[in-house]
Amino acid sequence: MSEMTYRDAINLALKEEMRRDKTVVTYGEDVALYEGAFKVTRGLLSEFGELRVRDCPISENTIVGVAVGAAMAGVRPVAELMTVNFALLAMDQIVNHMAKVRYMFGGQTKVPMVIRMPGGGGSQLGAQHSQSLESYFMHCPGMLVAYPATPADAKGLLKTSIRDDNPVIFLEHELLYNSKGEVPEDPEFLVPFGKAAVMSEGEQVTLVGYGRMAILALQAARQLEKEGISCEVIDLRTLVPLDMETVLASVRKTGRAMVIEECWKSAGLGGDIASRIYEGCFDTLLAPVRRISGLDVPMPYSRKIEKLCIPQLEGIVQGVHDLLNEPY
């Protein structure tokens, strides 16, 4: 184990996989010479050369489509979209092509590719650069969606993504890049898809999060522990496949659940997970499932009001109190 940042863990995963497999290539806007807008691809060009690490034009739809074609040809592209917001320019290639070619061609091809996308809000980047679009990707069948919360998972999930034969949307939270944690050095360290992590065990409330929301949930649980309230914190790790088994087992134990989602509440993934909790353990619930969500507004710039729009630690703590005080 060694301590490193979420950013360096992703960087290490890319390097290890590119060393292991010569067919792994990476490209995107400013990923090579500039070493990435968030410096995630630092050192890749000098180690692997310009054939495998390439800058490309600002053409998001084609960035994704080129990966689809290259993957069908037999290489394993890891494309970077500079931020998740620009994925909206590429939704045709993501939804109509990447997610569908295997199915509509009767299983005769596969698309082993990864699209890395930094995203999330909280940096005062305004309405067009602060979005959390994870529910968009979850909605469409045909692709896997990973969203690591910790440096170790960032490394292990990215390595699994690169080795997987399915297209993977790999979401990275911009506010987690500098977060630190212990990361296994083993180049065969992989984190499997569809296995949620129980970050902290508890008895009274289940907190379900992903990405930065899992980190906030863990912080809330630690704070609540001091007040004598015991929370179980679940980090989903991958949104597709979704590990409801772990979530339901926890809710059957605690009887109360809260889903924390950074995306907008309307048609957000928290509603989907809540409904699955109702379907799976209605009879053991002691209170209605709570959702702490992004506000249904375009993100404002001013920091005073931006933070109203994104789930905050205090809101989660208060939400747990409310959940425990539900008359039932």
């Binding site: 084609t62 489509g65 074609g69 092509h97 070619v101």
Partner: peptide
């Protein structure tokens, strides 16, 4: 679609095949 014949598909979103063709060409070049 017939990959054994290197027929890499009919695409029905107008213009959707351009990026995929570009990627296939890159992949085969690599």
């Amino acid at each position: 679609f017939a990959p054994e014949l290197n027929f890499m598909g009919g695409y029905a979103i107008v213009g959707g095949q351009f990026p995929i063709a570009t990627g296939l060409a890159w992949g085969s070049q690599l």
